[in-house]
Design a protein around this nucleic acid. Structure first.
Lengths: 160, 160
DNA sequence: CCGAGTCGGTTGCTTGATGCAACCTTGTGT
DNA sequence: ACACAAGGTTGCATCAAGCAACCGACTCGG
């Protein structure tokens, strides 16, 4: 994807995509939002090549979307956390999730649910709690496995 | 970007990005939403390579995000229109636009404004009209050049 | 009637990003 | 002493993107 620069575009959508439009980038942000903070976790969870993951994390840190913090020394090991700028991507992720849910025709329902932490209500495509009506932000919500995963979770046992 | 498939991912964000996460795809959707419906318009406006644009348009039609309709015959010429599925991407585009606006520090303000057609109010990052509070959809809103472009519109004259 | 231009592509070639496996460093467990 | 973990880096093969040239059907000007 080159480095996803869109020369000549003066639109903020293009600007946003220059930063988060590269392959894997939004999925990395999603994973970090869900609590996967370490290189190995991200690599295994996503199945992304290690050099690519390394490049993306570096770029995300440079762009002030992630912050790299040591969680131990000798040997030094690091975790990645979302900055406020990174957390602000939440509405975009929620919108994409909702679009995928609506149009990918999963047999057993959505694989992932976003719920409002304080009231447990479902979060809609605008990041608004369906139950209490509040306009939410990243910290107000949590992701849970949805009916789509729960129903198919022993799928891989079938061939045995 | 390969063809943007994310094997093993069961999340709807990954599903969505398999379709609209390829380079140029979301910008094509944005342009069509803004009324650029023809191959040549899109190519000139985006600066994308013609073969790539051709491939993206084909994929978007296959995925039922765009519809290809003839607007004249002999020679046959086509226009691309958004389907309902395509129009449903509007909240995601609005969220990305808002994120880009907030974090790209444009000197003269945002280059593009989204306004509610019926009341003229500004649309926020959730696709909600700031003026009347209505939760909007693609057809309820319109894009206008913002202060960022208007202020810099004769920029290209400087070298002369 | 001929040449130039328009529109919507396709083809061939080059460049650059991605995928994959191997390796490195620092340290722990046995 | 050996294997293993974490967090990467390096080298190489492959695949997608960028670029320019071309094509077919038609219009317009002279």
């Amino acid at each position: 994807m080159l480095r996803a620069d869109y020369p000549g575009q003066i639109c903020s959508i293009a600007k946003a995509l220059e930063v988060v439009g590269e392959r894997w980038t939004l999925l990395i942000v999603r994973d970090v939002m869900n609590g996967n903070r370490r290189f190995g976790e991200l690599q295994r969870g996503l199945g992304v090549a290690r050099n690519v993951l390394s490049a993306r994390l570096q770029r995300l840190v440079e762009e002030d979307i992630l912050e790299r913090r040591p969680y131990q020394s000798s040997p030094e090991r690091y975790e990645y956390f979302l900055t406020e700028k990174g957390l602000d991507l939440w509405p975009a992720l929620v919108a994409l999730l909702a679009w995928g849910d609506r149009h990918s025709s999963e047999p057993n329902g959505p694989p992932m649910l976003i719920v409002h932490k304080v009231c447990g209500g479902k979060v809609n495509d605008r990041g608004i709690c369906e139950s209490c009506g509040e306009v939410l932000h990243a910290r107000d919500a949590r992701a849970l496995p949805g009916p789509g995963v729960l129903a198919g979770q022993d799928e891989h046992l079938l061939p045995l």
